[in-house]
C-alpha cells in the first residue's frame, strides 16, 4: 500500500486501500454481507474519487485534485500551507475564514473547493505588495485593530470589501457590514477606526 503520496497520486492508493479493506472486512463478515460488500465495492470506491480543480490563488495558477468534500478553507490551510486564513467556527458563524473569490468576500469554510474551479482567490497572504503592507494592514497596526490577532486576517479581508462595496460610510454602517466578523477580544472600536481611516484615505483597494 502506498502512503504519504502528495496530491494527485493519493487517489489510486486510497482507492486500492479501500478495496483491500472492504475485502478484509468481507472475509470476516457473514456470507450475506460478503456478497453485498462485493456488489457495492465499485460504487463505494467512487466516493473517494478526487476531482480536478484549477484555480488562481493570490495571482498564482494551481492545478490540483481534491476530494469533493474538501472546503476551500481546508484546501488553503491543509493542502497548500496558506495558513493565514483562519478556522474559527467552521460553520459560517465567525468570519475568521474570510477570503475574496473573484473580488467578493466569502466564508471559505462553507465553500466547497471544487466549486471554485476557474476562479480567482485572494487570501491575506496575497494583499501586500512585496514588503509594502496593504493600507488596511497598516491601518490595523496603527489603530491596534487586534489583540490576539486570530480574527484579524478575516477582519482585514472583510474590511477591504466593506469599503469596496460602499458600506463604510459611517461607524454604524461599518458595524453592520462588518458584523460577519466576530472578535472575541473585542477590538471592534479600533477596527472601525482603522476602516474609517482607510476609507478617508481614498486609496484604490
Amino acid at each position: 500500500m502506498q502512503t504519504n503520496k502528495p496530491n494527485g497520486c493519493a487517489n489510486e492508493s486510497r482507492r486500492s486501500f479501500f478495496k483491500k479493506s472492504t475485502a478484509i472486512a468481507a472475509l470476516a463478515a457473514m456470507p450475506p454481507l460478503l456478497a453485498k460488500a462485493g456488489e457495492n465495492d465499485e460504487k463505494l470506491a467512487e466516493y473517494f474519487e478526487k476531482v480536478p480543480l484549477q484555480l488562481e490563488i493570490n495571482g498564482k495558477p494551481y492545478s490540483l485534485t481534491v476530494e469533493p468534500r474538501v472546503t476551500l478553507l481546508d484546501l488553503l490551510r491543509e493542502q497548500l500551507g496558506l495558513t493565514g486564513t483562519k478556522k474559527g467556527c467552521d460553520h459560517g458563524q465567525c468570519g475568521c475564514c474570510t477570503v475574496h473569490v473573484d473580488g467578493q468576500r466569502i466564508n471559505s469554510c462553507l465553500s466547497l473547493a471544487v466549486m471554485n474551479h476557474g476562479k480567482k482567490v485572494t487570501t491575506i497572504e496575497g494583499i501586500a505588495n512585496g514588503d509594502n503592507l496593504h493600507p488596511m494592514q497598516t491601518a490595523f497596526m496603527k489603530h491596534d485593530g487586534f489583540q490576539c490577532g486570530y480574527c484579524t486576517p478575516g477582519q482585514i479581508m472583510s474590511a477591504i470589501c466593506c469599503i469596496r462595496e460602499g458600506h463604510a460610510g459611517t461607524p454604524e454602517e461599518i458595524r453592520e457590514y462588518m458584523s460577519g466578523n466576530i472578535c472575541r477580544c473585542g477590538a471592534y472600536p479600533n477596527i472601525i477606526d482603522a476602516i474609517t481611516e482607510v476609507k478617508k484615505g481614498g486609496q484604490p483597494l
Binding site: G92, R105, N107, L110, C161, C162, G180
Partner: peptide, 9 residues
C-alpha cells in the same frame, strides 16, 4: 439576513 460574506454566497 446573515452577514455580508454569507449574502455574497
Amino acid at each position: 439576513g446573515a452577514s455580508a460574506q454569507l449574502r455574497n454566497m
